[in-house]
Every structure is written in C-alpha cells, then in structure tokens.
C-alpha cells in the first residue's frame, strides 16, 4: 500500500532522515517509534509532502506521490496532529466539514457523515456548534480524528496523536481506537515516542534512531529477537509489561495443557493479550479462565499454567 524507498531528508548538513526504506501493507497499523529528533516525524510528513524529501521515492498504491499535485494527494490522506490543529475560528461542525468542502460535497452528505462519525466517537450532537476551545483535550482529539476520517481516506497519518493527553484519557482513547471499525479499514502510520502505546496499537513497529531504521517488525519480534543492544535497551525499562502485552493467548495455545472445564465467566478469545488475561485474575474471583479459539476449540487455564506457558514461550523465542 505504502512503499518508502531509500528516502532521505537533509536540513543543511544535518541528515534528519538517512536513506530509509519500509513498506506498509493495506489495513496495517505501522508505528514509527523513537526518541525526539530520530527523524520519525520528518518521515511521516514526507508521506503527505508537508516536507519534501531530498532523495528517494515514496509510493502510495504504487503511485509516486511526487507525480500528484500536493493538495490533491493530501485530500486523500487523513492527518491527525498532536495538538489537534483544530481551527479555533471554526465550530466543531465546520472543522469536520473542511475536507468535504474542499472536495465540494453537498451539504446533506457532509451532515450525515458528520453525525455518523460523532456517534462512533461517542460525542454528543450538541457539540456541533461549539468552538474547539470549549471542549476538553480528549474531546478535541476525537474531533481531530473525526476531521481526518470524514472523507474516509484509505490512508491515515498520525503524528503523536495522543501525546498531549493525560494517562487516563489516553488509555480510554486507546480502547476506543482499537474498537473503532473505521480504523480497521485504514492503512495507518503513527508516530509516537511512547513504547507502551506502540506495543498496544501497532501491528508493526519501526524503531528509529538518528534518521535510520534500527529494527522493523512485530512487537514480539522486537521484544524477543532484538536486532541489537539499542533495541534491547530501548525496551528494557518496561520489558515485563511489554512482554505481557505483546504475547497473545494464541501464542501460548500449544503450550497450555489440554483441559476444558467450563467456568462461570465468559470465555476469552485467543486474540487477547496476556496482560488483559491476567487482569481477569486480579479483578475477577475465578481460579481459572476459559479460552476460546476460532473453530470452537476451548481450553481452561489457571494463573500458574499461563505463567508457565509464557516462560516456555519466551525461552523458545530466545533460542530461535
């Protein structure tokens, strides 16, 4: 879907981005992760030509982006900024209607689409005619997302979209983000410096440093097969939590004992990560939980059994 091929960006003598290449598949959520100044935002902005690349080529749907008019290109790419970038002189409705207006949609269509999005983002209709400054940070960020999604662009670029939010609001939005059906149809590239966020939302992660990609892969690959010391150190602080989040019950399926005794709590789907599964033991009173896999296979496991399976899995990864 998106192919970045040997792209560089020089600011004077400084190489902000140094000949990087990666590909993002359709409907994939790809995270550009790194500390500030690593070139991740510059990379993102080259994709919708907010910054023009110094060398290399970027393709979207096999089309070189330089062969399109930048305005036309951008109208087909949703963009969400850290500080939301809502127009302070436009109401919420007007803010959402900016791209439809540029695309010359008729009024009715815009209104219907706006209403649909508000519902999906759990925003009340009464917000339509207020100005952004009257909203909370979380609400503003949702409007920013609605604005980017309104014309249903296939590609979404997000520059630290949740960076300005407090922890509680952020984890709420994370949940909504993962649940939102609109986003499942999108190819998303998201920039963040937050390792947790990257592991929680990303299908794939590109870890960048000094303008280069250090390692690119799924969260488990990064965790259990780090390419070098830098990757290891980068993830070190929150390693255990990340591992629990990265490992899904599917990964442990084969390592769990074959037993099934129906408990009272609803069965968890095998796509669930270990972290959420363990939370069930903390908040629920159950001794064991049921796990359901596609094709009706079910297993029951206790906390100890899950942990044993996890350590087995970890050892296996390390030795591969």
């Amino acid at each position: 879907m998106i192919k970045v091929d040997g792209v560089s960006k020089h600011f004077g003598k400084v190489k902000a981005v140094d000949a990087i290449s990666f590909e993002v598949q359709e409907h994939e959520n790809m995270i550009l992760l790194g500390t500030s100044g690593c070139g991740k935002t510059t990379t993102l902005k080259m994709i919708n030509r907010l910054i023009e690349s110094s060398a290399g080529t970027i393709y979207i749907n096999k089309k070189n982006i330089l062969e399109q008019q930048p305005e036309v290109l951008r109208r087909g790419i949703g963009y969400v900024l850290q500080n939301n970038g809502l127009f302070p002189h436009y109401t919420v409705a007007e803010n959402i209607a900016i791209v439809p207006q540029l695309l010359k949609w008729d009024k009715k269509k815009t209104e219907n689409r706006t209403a649909e999005l508000l519902e999906k983002l759990h925003l009340d209709k009464s917000y339509l005619h207020v100005y952004p400054k009257e909203l909370s940070g979380g609400q503003q960020q949702r409007i920013g997302l609605a604005r980017a999604l309104v014309s249903d662009p296939p590609v979404l670029l997000m520059d630290e979209p949740f960076g300005a939010l407090d922890n509680v609001t952020r984890s709420n939005i994370h949940k909504e983000f993962k649940a939102l059906d609109e986003l499942k149809r999108k190819t998303i590239i998201m920039v963040t410096h937050d390792v947790q966020e990257a592991f929680e939302l990303g299908d794939r992660i590109c870890l960048m440093d000094k303008g280069k990609i250090i390692q690119s892969g799924s969260p488990t690959e990064l965790l259990f097969n780090p390419a070098n010391k830098f990757v290891e150190d980068f993830l070190k602080d929150q390693r255990l939590q990340l591992e629990f989040k990265a490992v899904k019950l599917t990964d442990l399926w084969e390592l769990l004992p074959h037993q099934h005794k129906k408990t009272e709590t609803a069965a968890l789907h095998a796509d669930t990560d270990l972290w959420s599964t363990l939370e069930n033991f903390r908040f629920g009173k159950a001794e064991t939980i049921d796990i359901k896999k596609d094709g009706d296979a079910e297993k029951t496991a206790s906390f100890e059994q899950l942990m044993a399976a996890f350590y087995q899995f970890k050892n296996k990864q390390g030795h591969e």
């Binding site: 305005e71 970038g85 127009f87 791209v99 604005r147």
Partner: peptide
Amino acid sequence: EAAVAMGM
C-alpha cells in the same frame, strides 16, 4: 499545518 495537510 493542519490546513495544509488537509489539502488547502
């Protein structure tokens, strides 16, 4: 930046 990115 938002204005430009939306294609104005």
